[in-house]
């Protein structure tokens, strides 16, 4: 089962994308987008993992002791926070769309209104 985390990443990506493609509600769409996004976190962390290695925090371990990759962790941690604010931006758009058109269904938003 050494590929299981990669399979989880792929599954999250595909199922999130399926949700986006078939979405009938803008809020649901934003949540699906963050599911797709979280697949990249699983993939990054899985690539950086090494069996038996510790976290890359050298408080009580010596430098050179086996540790997992700190680069992918740094990439993931900034994106978790940035992703949350981008989700907030998309939700704000959804709120204004609902005010302007009275619907959350993307299929009913087929005309542009000024």
């Amino acid at each position: 089962m050494s590929f299981a985390p990669f399979a989880v990443a792929a599954w999250l990506f595909v199922i999130g994308l399926y949700g986006i493609v078939t979405s009938r509600h803008l809020i649901h769409l934003v949540i699906c987008l963050s599911v797709v996004q979280s697949s990249t976190y699983v993939l990054l962390l899985a690539i950086g993992y090494r069996t038996g290695a510790a976290a890359p925090i050298f408080v009580d371990t010596k430098p050179g002791a086996p540790a997992v990759d700190p680069v992918v962790q740094a990439l993931t941690l900034t994106d978790v926070v940035v992703g949350a604010t981008v989700s907030a931006l998309l939700l704000a758009l959804a709120v204004q769309v609902h005010k302007a058109s009275g619907t959350f269904d993307p299929d009913e938003l087929d005309t542009l209104r000024g």
């Binding site: 050494s2 590929f3 299981a4 985390p5 990669f6 899985a46 690539i47 950086g48 993992y49 090494r50 069996t51 290695a53 890359p56 997992v68 990759d69 700190p70 680069v71 992918v72």
Partner: peptide
């Protein structure tokens, strides 16, 4: 394989 990491930068 998962757990057999051999990246250059992290190392």
């Amino acid at each position: 394989d998962f757990g057999a990491y051999d990246g250059v930068y992290g190392e």
